[in-house]
Design a binder for these strands. Structure first.
Length: 466
DNA sequence: GACCCGGAAGGATT
DNA sequence: GAATCCTTCCGGGT
């Protein structure tokens, strides 16, 4: 298979960019004909297959099929399958079309079909598929006996596995990108992982974007490779393996929760945008439990939502990859960030380069998305919708009242005018307000409309504190 | 020159 | 078709 070759900057750790991608999002990740999916896009899923289940679906027995279905139920939180409808071997299962599968398991046909197709394709790539259709009677090849097994070592002589491992190794080389299953839930209603979900990009299937295997590997690369190879592969493993050797100490969720009541806790609720929205993407990078993105973006103060973009160009590249806009740069990405100012999702930390602050926590942001979707479904287009707040934080209580919950200019303008009926308030008025709240002088140096929002926010906060 | 800002137009997606 | 969420480009300010 031809491998996508992207020229990435040689910034910190750009060699491995385990983005918070979801395996169910592959078509979205790779919509372009010239950008085929990675060699083993289901690598993590494959590695999590039930013990003893051959990776080649067409070699499955009836019993294997049932095992696989049960596994899918658990892994993708699918509705219960009627196993009576799946009295077939793997070969027959693979012959079922998406429609067939959909009829047998409404609501899960697509997922099942996609998983099967990926497994089949993977098996083909790995060269372990019998060239002629045969009824499987024996396991074609050994497979790591446990979903928790380590990746095959290079000493394995089975070509397929060697190939697979090579891909992993390639991903660990400079200028390679690795994609991780998204920790969050697909907004299109794709599998949810329920209680096993964590806000953690998990094992990253390798996507060598530069087919040239680089032999050069500096120390930090080696360290990161070790970290990479030990990265948890499933949400469960994320928790189980959290004490794994890492450069950065990753606090365990419970421990962290006890110590801090965080604005942005590690176990924050799932967004439903799966990283398609910029704020979600940033949050996923920021909250990666393995801290793999701290070279790109890192919290400065997690409790207040202040973060710093450590590597603007690199982060923009990541975002570009995420959105398939490979010409993305920091200038463009920062423009997108600035659009968040007007809806009080973000604001700039004055005086600090590349520093921004989230003004809403993930719960609110999630609600924003939900409300947007809800509004679409209900046909509401203009009226600002109240955001349902579950947090008792003062700012949140005050921010949600009238604040627009989408990025549409109309909505924001309406809210702005309601908040500040005299939107043409004189600078004098605004300065008076800023004096009241004591900290808005800097804000008032720029766009008066933006400042009106900030002043309103700060004023409300002021009232809250009183 | 890099960063930052916001207007404007338009595209992709839902 | 409308709305949303950017993406792209730009001129201007610091």
């Amino acid at each position: 298979m031809k491998v996508v070759s992207l020229q990435l900057p040689s910034g910190p750790s750009m060699e491995r960019l385990p983005l918070p991608f979801s395996p169910t999002e592959l078509l979205w990740r790779y919509p372009l004909p010239w950008a085929p999916p990675p060699p083993s896009p289901l690598g993590d899923t494959k590695a999590q297959l039930p013990a003893g289940l051959p990776p080649e679906p067409r070699l499955w027995t009836r019993e294997d099929v049932i095992v696989f279905l049960k596994w899918c139920e658990r892994e993708f939180d699918l509705p219960k399958f009627d196993v009576d409808l799946f009295q077939m071997n793997g070969k027959a299962l693979c012959l079922l079309t998406k429609t067939d599968l959909g009829e047998r398991c409404p609501g899960a046909g697509d997922v099942l079909h996609n998983v099967l197709q990926m497994l089949v394709r993977d098996a083909c790539l790995l060269g372990r598929v019998p060239s002629s259709p045969v009824t499987p009677t024996a396991r074609a090849a050994p497979y790591p006996p446990s979903p928790h097994s380590h990746p095959p070592t290079p000493t394995w002589t089975v070509d397929g596995f060697h190939h697979f491992h090579s891909a992993v190794a390639a991903a660990a080389q400079p200028n390679s990108v690795t994609l991780s299953p998204a920790p969050s839930v697909d907004s299109s209603g794709s599998p949810q992982r329920g209680e096993t979900m964590s806000y953690a990009p998990t094992y990253a299937p390798p996507v060598p974007i530069n087919a040239q295997a680089s032999s050069g590997s500096n120390q930090s690369d080696s360290d990161e490779e070790a970290q990479f190879s030990q990265a948890p592969r499933s949400p469960k493993e994320v928790q189980q393996n959290s004490p794994a050797p890492q450069t950065h100490v990753v606090p365990q969720h419970t421990h962290y929760r006890v110590q801090h009541r965080e604005f942005f806790p590690n176990d924050m609720p799932e967004s439903n945008t799966n990283g398609r929205l910029l704020w979600d993407f940033l949050q996923q990078l920021l909250n990666d439990p393995t801290q793999r993105y701290t070279n790109y973006i890192a919290w400065k103060n997690r409790e207040t939502g202040v973060f710093k973009i450590v590597d603007p160009a690199g982060l923009a590249k990541l975002w570009g990859i995420q959105k398939n806009h490979l010409s993305m740069n920091y200038d463009k990405m920062s423009r997108a960030l600035r659009y968040y100012y007007r809806v009080n999702i973000l604001r700039k930390v004055q005086g600090e380069r590349h520093c921004y602050q989230f003004l809403r926590n993930p719960t609110e942001l999630k609600n924003i998305k939900n409300i947007s979707l809800l509004r679409q479904q209900m046909g509401h287009t203009q009226q600002p919708v109240k955001t349902e707040m579950k947090e008792e934080r003062c700012e949140e209580d005050n921010m949600d009242e009238d604040m627009p919950t989408d990025l549409s200019i109309n909505t924001c303008e309406q809210w702005r005018k309601r908040t500040w009926p005299d939107s043409a308030a004189t600078p004098h008025d605004k300065h008076r307000i800023s004096a009241l709240i004591g900290d808005s002088i800097m804000m008032l140096k720029r766009d008066p409309e933006y400042n009106s929002e900030q002043c309103a926010l700060n004023l409300k906060s002021e009232k809250c504190e009183q």
